[in-house]
Design a protein around this nucleic acid. Structure first.
Lengths: 207, 207
DNA sequence: TGTTGTGAAGAGGTTCACAGCG
DNA sequence: CGCTGTGAACCTCTTCACAACA
């Protein structure tokens, strides 16, 4: 399987979101042009993104909504449920634990961890917060696929090392620190402060 | 002023983070190679990023930490405080309102808004949640520069229209919807579900 | 006719390699 | 000698333009 470009995956994710809207509205087919307008890109881009996986559109008509949804779900790896743990039961961790959009997409929280004795044992959206020291023994039972890391920057690398040792191969990192992981482990980092700085940089230079 | 590439801004933000660590440890100078190792990139990339704004390194030595910090802060628009409002006092909005890392970087919450009568009036980290209908009249007093939008997808565009009418020219969008804004307004979108799908896509295709 | 699929051209960002300088 | 600054090569992603086809 050829490597999919990261910007392309992000767009495919957006297409899928709109296709699901179309399906809810009983729209049978959709053209690259409509999809482009909805996702804020160009029709050529949409066709290039899709043609990477084969040609499943009908010329003069567009793409069949249910068919395209099924293919995109396959491409994005949504053909199966994914289980994830949240490490760090702070404000952001708690918010993510309760984020309904995850469940709707087939991502399920299996456990929430923290190091803080004051938080351990507390209930969080149906999950009792566990001691992070338990992660290694819990993993074989819960078999989590992904770890969402929402701990302070100082402990982010140690947390990453731990979840890798637990056999987890996907990390969504909200700590403001780059993580070193072995080959075969995928990391996505989201840095809130950086996002604001991208804005301030743009605003400062705009005038 | 030439336009700065988005990936470059993100790296500059990371460099700044590490330079602040260096300053705290009294390190006087730092080489492109060290900075690259810390930020997870290459020394050539670091030098290219920096040379875009002029040449302020010392050959054979590296960059002076305090000097480079000052320049990066200027480039990233951190030479002044920024005021932002949060629209949407749900879980994510609340978490962001209390995120200390923002304040440390010079980003200050001036108000939190919601449409839900049950939330309006409640205290949130020192802010009384206000009715979003007040935003237009509040803006001239609070002069917010940025709006963080954490409302459901369905109301995201209407919210964006409102904050633009209020004179706000920077938007950090956490709603899973692309926003249409007039020329001169900058939008950064963070989509949690997309981030997880980038991971699931990578994990699904990896083996 | 309307819309896809795609080679070719273009733009933008990254890496290389080395001259230049402290 | 070591490390910066940078033109040139390289690569990746985007846009264009049009032949192919339902």
């Amino acid at each position: 399987m050829k490597r999919i470009a990261d910007p392309s995956v992000r767009r495919l994710s957006a297409y899928l979101r709109f296709l699901e809207d179309c399906q809810a509205r009983q729209v049978p087919t959709v053209s690259s042009d409509e999809l482009a307008r909805l996702a804020g890109t160009t029709s050529a881009q949409v066709r290039k993104d899709l043609s990477f996986f084969g040609s499943f559109g009908k010329r003069g008509l567009g793409y069949e909504v249910p068919d395209l949804i099924a293919r995109l779900r396959g491409i994005l790896g949504l053909g199966r449920p994914w289980h994830f743990v949240i490490v760090g039961a702070g404000k952001i961790g708690s918010a993510l634990a309760q984020y309904a959009a995850f469940r709707e997409r087939g991502f399920h929280v299996v456990a929430v961890y923290d190091t803080d004795a004051a938080k351990i044992g507390a209930a969080l959206d149906g999950h009792r917060v566990r001691d992070v020291a338990q992660l290694l023994e819990d993993a074989p039972l819960d078999h989590p696929d992904i770890a969402v890391i929402t701990v302070p920057a100082a402990s982010a690398q140690a947390t990453a090392d731990l979840v890798v040792r637990a056999g987890i191969r996907g990390i969504l990192n909200f700590a403001p620190a780059p993580l070193r992981v072995p080959h075969g482990v995928t990391v996505q980092t989201v840095n809130m402060a950086t996002e604001l700085e991208v804005l301030s940089s743009a605003l400062a230079h705009h005038d």
